[in-house]
């Protein structure tokens, strides 16, 4: 009787271990897949009225991040960070095109975007698309965004806030997350200029 319990216990233990390994492997594969497929077709209007598409990323190093002008905290924080990173890189920073893409085309017109982006920096280009153009870009960049309604009838947006670095072929090179330090971010951007 006791031996049967022992065998059952061992089998149950093995099952748990196998499941954990399986889940970890699945997570690893998914992570790799996502990184391999970030990037692709998009077409939007820049805040100066020019059209910018994925073809404009070719031959240049680029940095893209997403947000919206009514965003009170993380977007202004990120805009100022990006401007500071590029500033710290001096002339190397000029080799990187920085794009801030709105996830809120309902409120963010090209005019609003122009006022907004230039308030923070002259090194960042704001991009505005139609709802369909945003959807296409979201598919290409595996971007998550969702409208959250507030009690006073207005709304806010949840969104992916990582900064994507794209190489000279327009392919995903690396990402800078919110938790990265100033030096880590500048190191990644320097690597993008040198190796990307």
């Amino acid at each position: 009787m006791r031996r049967r319990h022992l065998v059952q216990g061992i089998l149950a233990g093995l099952l748990v271990v196998a499941t954990v390994i399986g889940v970890m492997e699945l997570h690893r594969r998914q992570t790799e897949d996502v990184e391999a497929v970030i990037g692709g077709p998009f077409s939007m209007l820049a805040h100066d009225g020019a059209r910018v598409t994925h073809e404009d990323l070719t031959g240049r190093r680029s940095l893209l991040f997403f947000g919206f002008t009514y965003c009170p905290d993380i977007c202004p924080t990120t805009l100022l960070q990006v401007a500071a990173w590029l500033e710290a890189m001096e002339e190397k920073g000029d080799l990187i095109d920085a794009y801030f893409v709105t996830v809120d085309p309902e409120r963010d017109t090209v005019e609003r975007m122009a006022e907004y982006v230039t308030y923070f920096s002259d090194r960042i280009t704001g991009l505005v698309g139609t709802a369909d153009e945003l959807r296409q870009m979201a598919d290409s960049y595996r971007l998550y965004y969702a409208r959250i309604d507030l009690d006073d009838g207005s709304y806010t947006m949840d969104h992916t806030a990582a900064v994507y670095l794209m190489d000279a072929e327009g392919r995903f090179f690396d990402a800078i997350t919110m938790t990265a330090s100033f030096d880590e971010a500048v190191a990644k951007l320097t690597r993008l200029v040198e190796d990307g």
Binding site: V34, I74, D151, T156, D158, T160, A175, T177
Partner: peptide, 17 residues
């Protein structure tokens, strides 16, 4: 109105308010 928000970061750089 005023509200309290937390900017939270999850897996893969997804940040939500």
């Amino acid at each position: 109105m005023g509200e309290f928000h937390a900017t939270t970061s999850g897996d893969g750089g997804v940040v939500a308010m």
